[in-house]
Design a protein around this nucleic acid. Structure first.
Lengths: 276, 276
DNA sequence: AGGATGGCGTTTACGCCGTAAACGAGCGGG
DNA sequence: CCCGCTCGTTTACGGCGTAAACGCCATCCT
């Protein structure tokens, strides 16, 4: 597994060979905010609560997050949170928003910052890597990003942030996509990103839960399974292998090719694309 | 390549305006099991409980499902369920399994039954439509299929059922895929299916929740949004449009083309595919 | 026949949950 | 000085998942 020590520099989209480093794994640096936190929480605010919730989910999992426990990590009773957050559900929405917003915050050189870009393909690649970085940084939070209803009911997830959808559509529009094609591209892109990243973080979760469940005689279990499932048995080592980064690049590239085709078809037919 | 030529034949179910019929929308018929149920539950068993849970989630949503409420729909106290189900989490796993197993049950003509097929492309198309039918029949259950950890930790979701993965790998193996390529295909296929269907059912959920939230002055809300988000404003009618079926076919076809390419590359290099 | 047995649903109870409501403690401005 | 405001606490309630004890009743052995 490539935990990678090295940064990315050029990051042109041609990485599919087999010893792929995984630049999306580099951590997002925390804000230099550590003053005197152990001594005193120094007063609550909504942002502090949301950050604490993100951290909590990362460490303990979504199921373990309760208002009381979250409060206690902040040195406060549960009810104190309700002055800043309407309730648990809204808190989760806030967590999603906060995590997605980091797309704009941590520019971190040249990879993730999506405000400035050269061309829609560059934009889509940056956005994809930005989202993937978020997913890998917060694997337990990401399913929330995918499953919460969108902010506006008529916009489809998983991007959820109106700001993000707006920037997406605007970029494609500027790139020459007629509206119809831009929307089709948005959906194809969303579903690709959602599917790949959800699969990837779920795998991470499964690996983790594998570690803390080494219970009674898994050998017998294995053998019975394998008897019924010869193909599974034969490919088990391959199934366990992690080539997520390479597969991600491959699929992303393929999608971009597809969108490129879509763009040219739309242009040639004068923007009158009836179907996808 | 273009494997969708045969398709379905009749299926008049025309619902999404334009031109696209959506055969996956036809309901799966319930078993002819309705004897005297209102008079007496006639005794619990695990299957009855799981079916009741599926129905409950379909009608009330996952969040509303509690042991007490589920019990009461069966005319029974909550604790009675524990004789057949170890706990709530296991019940949810059971729900997922039961729903996925219907892939084999309801053959229903020629579209969904995946045991018998002619070639791997046919199989993948049938499987995709089968899964989509399940997703559309149980939109509130499907996110569960996607987010539960897999049955074996080293197999990645969303298919989750070992039986299904086994049949997938076996079919591709028979179709000439070397193991490495079959596994790559499994992952690409899984992530496509997961992404598309999750997006689609989430949209259904959003539409539903739109209906029961017609609250205070949405007009003002709209205008403020639109001021900040011109591209969203312009494309709103397009974003709301439902072309899921067409987009599904398009993406599926594209994926099959990609897998076909993968197969031939793998064959030409003698099964020695280093990367995807 | 009659008592033991064991399957199955109920009752009771416990601790944790989200959160409504009332309650102070501290503080800055008239 | 004390009013009123901000902000965290206390108390309380109903619902949750579920452990444990408790009937009830059909069946079976003798």
């Amino acid at each position: 597994m490539a935990t990678m020590s090295d940064q990315t520099r050029d990051q042109t989209r041609d990485q599919t060979s087999d010893d792929v480093r995984d630049p999306d794994l580099v951590a997002v640096q925390e804000g230099p905010e550590a003053a005197s936190e152990l001594t005193r929480p120094a007063g609550l605010d909504r942002d502090k609560i949301l950050q604490a919730a993100v951290d909590f989910i990362d460490e303990e999992g979504l199921a373990a997050l309760t208002m009381r426990r979250l409060g206690s990590t902040l040195g406060v009773e549960a009810m104190a949170l309700y002055r800043y957050v309407p309730g648990r559900e809204d808190l989760l929405d806030g967590v999603v928003d906060r995590v997605v917003e980091t797309l704009w915050d941590d520019e971190d050189g040249d990879d993730v910052y999506i405000g400035d870009h050269s061309g829609w393909q560059d934009y889509l690649v940056r956005l994809a890597h930005g989202m993937r970085r978020i997913a890998l940084a917060h694997p337990a939070v990401f399913p929330l990003v995918a499953s919460r209803p969108p902010a506006a009911p008529w916009v489809r997830p998983p991007l959820r942030s109106l700001r993000l959808v707006e920037s997406f559509l605007g970029t494609l529009h500027d790139g020459g996509f007629p509206d119809q094609a831009a929307v089709a591209a948005y959906r194809a892109y969303s579903s690709f990103l959602l599917g790949h990243l959800l699969l990837e973080v779920t795998q991470i979760g499964a690996q983790v839960s594998l570690l803390d469940q080494p219970e009674g005689d898994p050998q017998a279990q294995k053998e019975t399974d394998f008897a019924e499932y010869p193909n599974l048995a034969r490919t088990e080592p391959l199934l366990g292998q992690d080539k997520s980064a390479a597969e991600f690049e491959e699929s992303l590239e393929n999608l971009l090719d597809r969108l490129d085709r879509l763009l040219h078809e739309a242009k040639n037919s004068g923007g009158d694309v009836g179907d996808l």
